[in-house]
Write a protein that binds this DNA or RNA. Structure first.
Length: 580
RNA sequence: GCCCCGGUAGCUCAGGGGAUAGAGCGUUCGCCUCCUAAGCGGAAGGUCACAGGUUCAAAUCCUGUCCGGGGCGCCA
């Protein structure tokens, strides 16, 4: 059986053709949740215009042309021409029962499976990860999880910055320090210092800068000794990345790393292909592609510089090579770039060139999944009090510490071991929910007190709702009550009805997040679900239900809600502890 | 100068053609002998930056203005 909202939409579509002819078969019935009923359809007003009839008349004709009897026990026309539907309780019960029996909780399979290549996280080698990486990592991972769950093939690409001119100075500095044989830079705190020192030396010492430039040439030429030192830097950095990923609970693995260096061998042929296609030409000694529509300050055509005057390749070349690789070799059908909004123009140009080159053509699409900055309370880019960029480790550690402190405050005599297990789940979950629940395109204000607050629209609130359900299950088990019996779900109380209705929206919420690439929609849905559950929890005793069938039905509703919350949180990369 | 993204309640944010604009925090009034009160129920609080336009219908679409952030040829 179809989930009621889709069933209503389908019914309305046939009703429209029946009433007004096949030429209107394509109209969107505009079915949505309603405050005045269970669902409402807003199609009559639009149709009225083309049909030159009054909206209420149109609505009446549509309603008359279909039999809503099996789904609804009330269909009313209201206001200018809204059609309000109140579901039959049996339809609601069947819908929820179908959901309970469905592994996928009502998430439909995609009409066509995409091969999604998703580029996210992408930290830089020899630099410590900082706040600037938190959004791409969290948002990218959530999208990867959602798309994968829906049934798309997801290829993660961690486009780490492991190549380019800075490595000349880094390697040269490493040699100055003793050829890299020094006690391994095990902590990346040191390597961060290392980068800074190299930078300072590069800017201050022309002789060093010169050596650094020569070292870049050696690196790009594949000099053995140089590569060895380079690999050392990369290896140490990767250790750091994965320690962060582990703390964060991110699905990226070493196999997903495809850094800038891996395109090194493709840069020349990419440039050659662009030349061959007549797209790239030499301008001021640099090989440039001028995509139509892009201009600089002076209103002159703005180039994408494929090869610099000095013969080197910049990041535009790498991104073009990566685009070519992702389309021509990986055969991705949907390419996602989870990169900050400031790079919008860069990606617009890269995609434009990709289209000109014929690498990117429909139905294959590339999308810049842009996001805004993380701001402090002062509405400026988040910095430490000293004005430094915030290290990601400290951010995550502080989240865990704060979560643990909250646990102590709440339950001073609680088991410390339990707290230690719980704190990361709550702290990291709080950071993730705070980030994901904001529309990604906007900047968002990072506020510890708000995200970890005891109350409100937060990660902990969702986890708490889930934990309360499991608390019921534990109590049930203690009382020898077997869950998952044959008893049907019976919807009687308003709170049960509201919860059931909310549960039916799970599939739509997940699909919506995937199509729009906006995880905050799923966040909003899960919050609404948790609210509906909390209201149900207050109003409808489960284990103390008036009779056994009611108790079992409520247990089943609880089970379904717990699954939906846990799954939804999982799709966001947030853990759902069973007790808090 | 040109381009992109924002401007919605005191604060943080949803809503992005459809009914009286929603939520959380904060303020305020209630609710724990009862499955976790990190909870639930109620109240107050808004010329949706501004001005035009399109439409039966605009917070939502278009144009312009103002404010804030960002980008604009060899860094990534």
């Amino acid at each position: 059986m179809k989930e009621p909202q889709s069933a209503l939409a389908a019914l309305l579509r046939t009703a429209v053709t029946a009433a007004f002819g096949a030429e209107h078969a394509g109209v969107d019935p505009m079915v949505r949740r309603s405050e005045r009923a269970d669902y409402q359809a807003d199609l009559a007003m639009g149709l009225a215009k083309t049909l030159r009839q009054s909206p209420r008349q149109v609505a009446a004709a549509v309603v008359a042309a279909a039999d809503f009897g099996s789904l609804c026990d009330r269909v009313e026309i209201a206001g200018p021409g809204f059609i309000n539907f109140t579901l039959k309780t049996s339809a609601l019960e069947q819908g929820v029962a179908a959901l309970a029996a469905d592994e996928r909780l009502g998430v439909p399979r995609p009409a066509s499976v995409d091969r999604v290549v998703i580029d996210y996280s992408s930290p830089n080698v020899a630099k410590e990860m900082h706040v600037g990486h938190v959004r791409t990592t969290i948002i990218g991972d959530a999208l990867a999880r959602v798309l994968e769950f829906i049934g798309h093939e997801v290829i993660r690409q961690n486009h780490i910055g492991d190549w380019g001119t800075p490595f000349g100075m880094l390697i040269e500095h490493l040699l100055d320090l003793g050829g890299g044989e020094t006690r391994g830079h095990s902590s990346l705190g040191e390597l961060n210092e290392f980068y800074r020192a190299a930078r300072v030396k590069f800017d201050a010492d022309p002789e060093f800068a010169d050596r650094a430039r020569q070292r870049v040439v050696l690196l790009q030429a594949g000099d053995t000794r140089t590569l060895e030192l380079w690999r050392k830097l990369v290896a140490i950095s990767e250790l750091h990345f994965f320690s962060i990923y582990e703390k964060l609970g991110v699905t990226l693995s070493p196999a997903d790393i495809r850094g800038e260096s891996s395109y090194n061998s493709m840069l020349a042929e990419t440039a050659a292909e662009l030349e061959r296609l007549g797209l790239a030409k030499i301008n001021d000694g640099a090989l440039c592609v001028f995509a139509p529509g892009f201009v600089n300050r002076e209103g002159e055509p703005l180039p994408l510089i494929v090869r610099k005057q000095d013969g080197g390749f910049g990041y535009a070349a790498t991104d073009l090579a990566a685009l070519r690789y992702r389309t021509q070799t990986l055969h991705g059908t949907r390419l996602l770039y989870v990169v900050g909004a400031p790079q919008a123009q860069h990606f617009a140009m890269v995609f434009a060139v990709g289209e000109l080159a014929g690498w990117l053509k429909p139905p294959v699409r590339a999308e810049h999944v842009a996001f805004g900055a993380v701001l402090g309370a002062d509405k400026k880019m988040l910095k430490t009090r000293a004005g430094d960029t915030v290290r990601l480790v400290s951010l995550l550690d502080e989240a865990v510490e704060r979560a643990e402190a909250e646990l102590v405050r709440r339950e001073p005599n609680g088991d410390p071991a339990v707290r230690r297990a719980l704190a990361p789940q709550i702290g990291i979950g709080a950071i993730k929910y705070a980030d994901l629940s904001n529309d990604r395109i906007k900047d968002y204000v990072f506020d510890w007190d708000r995200m970890l607050a005891a109350e409100g629209r937060t990660g902990p609130y969702l986890q708490y709702a889930h934990a309360r359900i499991h608390s019921i299950f534990r109590k049930a088990a203690e009382g020898g009550i077997v869950r998952g019996g044959a008893g049907a779900i019976v919807v009687v109380e308003p709170a049960e009805r509201a919860l059931a209705l909310e549960l039916l929206g799970f599939g739509r919420a997940v699909t919506d997040a995937a199509e729009t690439l906006h995880p905050h929609r799923l966040c909003g849905y899960l919050y609404d679900l948790a609210v509906a559950f909390s209201a149900f929890f207050e109003a409808c005793p489960v284990l103390r239900a008036p009779d056994e069938p009611t108790r079992d039905s409520r247990l089943a509703l609880c089970g379904l809600t717990a699954r939906a919350l846990a799954r939804g949180l999982d799709l966001l990369g947030i853990q759902a502890p069973e007790r808090m």
